[in-house]
Design a protein around this nucleic acid. Structure first.
Lengths: 151, 151
DNA sequence: AAAATTTTGTTGCTGATGCAACTAATAGGA
DNA sequence: TCCTATTAGTTGCATCAGCAACAAAATTTT
């Protein structure tokens, strides 16, 4: 018999949703950003220039999700696109000044949230958790090669 | 700076999505069930009689999600509703014979998937992971009291 | 060099989700 | 008892996700 409360995929989903929703509230209420938008901004904050394709891979999102998030962010003036002259299929994306300001306001809050969230665990437990997640993710990717994750 | 690959909420989401998608494929392709539908069936498989409200709480789903899943399952003849004579706002739900057959075919597959999925970890690591997830979930619930999780 | 294939990114469509408003039933208070 | 508040469940609405089809550009094959 499957006891839902003990079923690992279920529990992972519940935990991920709890944290995701709590975080999304910060993104949305304070900065009007969706989770995909946040991932785009976080990627560009980290790497300066990236293409939509890179961002999708980095943020584990579907390319259409990224495309729409990028459009919205561009309209809001938070990121800028510039065609790549060497390969005109691609566009290089980067944060505008305003985009970077938002990133720099948001990043510490995201990290503070993570810190608060994970503070029930000891440092050692945090390391163990990170390692277990890594191994499970690697294994899960092998089990189901294709596919992007939620946004 | 937020390094997405190291950011715990992000990593939890990716892992949960990976497992969820892989599992959902089994539910969907083999039995035509969505995740909410699976949770309803799993709950009724476990408890026999339940109200929609119980199922929502047990499966951490929004009541509208449960309502629609229940309607669909009823139409397919997998569950039956019976008004509670003592409180006619409620309806008691239970699996039909066909519903139970599906549950009994699906449950072992779900458990086998879980087993395969978690088999990269030792028994001891599995226990540790379960405990860490429990503590984090409990803590996350305190941080953001309201709210249901994905379906 | 022409044709076929692959790749980047966009968009129409469909289905799912959560919120909020609603109905019906019950419980509680004056 | 009547009036209000709460609760179970449904449904309209807006949003959002992913798929698949597509256009444009680059790459590979012959």
């Amino acid at each position: 018999m499957v006891v839902l409360e003990h079923f690992l995929p279920y529990r992972l989903n519940v935990l991920a949703s709890l944290t995701s929703n709590a975080l999304a509230q910060i993104y949305a209420e304070r900065f009007g950003l969706s989770i995909p938008a946040w991932r785009v901004i976080a990627t560009l904050g980290q790497y300066e220039y990236r293409t939509a394709r890179d961002i999708a891979a980095h943020g584990v999102m579907h390319k259409s999700t990224v495309s729409r998030a990028v459009s919205a962010l561009e309209q809001r003036g938070l990121i800028a696109r510039r065609p790549n002259e060497d390969d005109r299929r691609e566009e290089l994306l980067q944060l505008t000044e305003e985009g970077r300001e938002i990133y720099e306001a948001l990043a510490p809050e995201a990290l503070a949230f993570e810190e608060r969230f994970i503070s029930v665990l000891t440092e050692e437990e945090q390391r163990v958790l990170a390692s277990l997640i890594d191994r499970l993710s690697g294994h899960a990717r092998q089990m189901a090669p294709e596919g992007e994750a939620e946004g």
